[in-house]
């Protein structure tokens, strides 16, 4: 057990050092990522100005701006750039052999890698995030109680794990398809529009709203933001979080299953 902890610590340290090489570029990139939100703010301001009512699908203008900022936080947890394509590439090039030979678990190793990646990201990105949130502080007309904040934090952490195991599952399909880029593209397309990254999912008309509400994609962006903004009633918080945990368990089992089945199919040649 102690040896395993040491291994994890070493992996984390290596990944942390690797990620901190380009920190200046990183901070600037994070700040630039807020630029599209500027246009979104203007767009929604124009939309609200043209309407006679103050709210749209239950959102005031200030809610809407706060929503977009909060989805940025949620996406910072749940997005996994390069994970699925990286796994598929390792399968294709045969690099995955090293996980078969060495006593290291692929999914565990990559998870630690992501944790390190995210830890560095939050350390460097906290400043730009704090700066933008400070500038936009007037848009947050919320005073969440402790359970709501706890639910928000839980949804962010589960969002991270859900994003990881979902994308890992897509990458592991590479055992069968080798090239998953078109599959990944379909996932990205749906994830971009149906995770709530583009607009609050409450805007969707029926039956789309119910369908999207049941999908795991909403936990990637919409759900944490909606919790903090009070769009999820207090009594639904626990059932909703339980549903998220169920989706998470499903993708953990699925990725394990795919990895095990995939390895039996896999054949590596040469050095």
């Amino acid at each position: 057990m102690y040896a395993r902890l040491c291994t994890w610590k070493t992996i984390l340290r290596i990944c942390l050092e690797e990620r901190l090489v380009y920190r200046g570029d990183f901070a600037l990139g994070t700040l630039m990522r807020f630029l599209p939100i500027v246009t979104q703010i203007f767009l929604w301001s124009a939309i609200f100005a043209a309407r006679s009512e103050d709210t749209l699908a239950g959102y005031t203008y200030h809610d809407m701006v706060a929503y977009y900022l909060l989805t940025m936080v949620a996406r910072a947890f749940s997005s996994m750039p390069g994970l699925a394509s990286g796994i598929a590439l390792q399968i294709r090039t045969g690099e995955i052999k090293k996980f078969i030979i060495q006593p290291i678990d692929l999914l565990g190793f990559l998870l630690l890698n992501r944790i390190a990646h995210k830890a560095v990201y939050y350390t460097v990105a906290t400043l730009p995030f704090a700066f933008v949130f400070f500038l936009c502080r007037d848009y947050f007309e919320i005073s969440p109680d402790l359970p709501r904040v706890a639910a928000f934090v839980a949804s962010l952490l589960m969002g991270f794990l859900l994003g990881y195991f979902l994308e890992a599952s897509i990458g592991l399909i590479g055992f069968w398809f080798l090239e998953v880029s078109s599959l990944l593209f379909v996932y990205m397309l749906f994830s971009f529009f149906l995770s709530g990254h583009m607009f609050p999912l409450d805007m969707l008309p029926e039956p789309f709203h119910t369908l999207v509400d049941l999908s795991p994609l909403k936990y990637m962006a919409y759900f944490p933001a909606a919790i903090l903004l009070g769009k999820i009633p207090a009594e639904s918080l626990v059932p909703e979080l339980a549903l998220e945990a169920a989706w998470l368990a499903f993708f953990v089992v699925l990725s394990r299953y795919l990895y095990r089945r995939g390895l039996t199919r896999y054949s590596g040649f040469g050095g």
Binding site: A46, I47, A49, A50, L56, M198, F199, M203, L204, P205
Partner: peptide, 16 residues
């Protein structure tokens, strides 16, 4: 996305 927006508003920007 824009169809959804125009589901809620008649135009983008008042009198634009």
């Amino acid at each position: 996305f824009y169809l959804l927006i125009f589901h809620y508003t008649a135009q983008i920007g008042p009198d634009s």
